[in-house]
Amino acid sequence: MRTMRSLAGGLRLTLVGGFLSYRALITFLTPALFFVMMIATPLFQIITFSLLGRYSKAETADFYVVGTAIQASAMAGIYGASQAVANERAFGTLAQMLISPAARFWIMLGRLIPTCVNGIVVAVFGVFAGWALLGLRLGAGDLAPIGLAAVCASASCAGLGLVIGALGLRFSDMYFITNAVHLVLLIATGAVIPLALLPEWVRALSRLLPMSHSIAMAQDVVAGRSFSALHSVGAELLLAACYFGVALAALARSERQSRRHSTLELV
């Protein structure tokens, strides 16, 4: 009974607290910034790389359209989730979070879910824009696996964003990391350059990066190739869980270090 109450309390903190913290901590939630970062930038990215890819003829046009549409959610995952953690320090609210008795697992899950939903919205918008503007051919049966790919890509990307955010509590150069990671995710996940054209070490790296498994699955779907949803979804969700675990460990370490060395400049 106590476990059930504790679970219900944790889920409530994740959903209600997560929604409130998302509104409180994400800096791009003004209409103008949201439009630029979550609508305009992904749209131009999809159009640019799809047209470039089409002329390269290395893959079909649909390959690039769907790949860049899923990859567009990286902006929400990387910047959103990292801000959802690191801005606690920037806004001076970290001390109040740290002296609360709430389990860090639920707090962090609450930071992940809204940014994940944001990423899904961006990816779905990207796929729709690709269909409407760039002639992406989609069958009715393609929608479910592409939607699943968007969900998994957003989750693992937000997981990596949380890791960066937890590091951002400790280091002042967080945007150096977010910018670098965003570029790496553009190049090394197979969205704009087919993985087969990349060096072996980049292919190996891509297997550990968020999104690459989901992007590959979406590209297989639109190409009509056979794919293993279980394998792709499983790999992506495993990555999401690993990143989430690393973020929790990094937060716990930051908290310990802070109590010992006063490193988080709490109030």
Binding site: V16, G17, L20, S21, R23, A24, P101, A102
Partner: peptide, 16 residues
Amino acid sequence: RLSARDNLRYFAELHG
């Protein structure tokens, strides 16, 4: 960015 009430709501959630 939150109202006074929502600030209190969030911290109340943190305290269960």
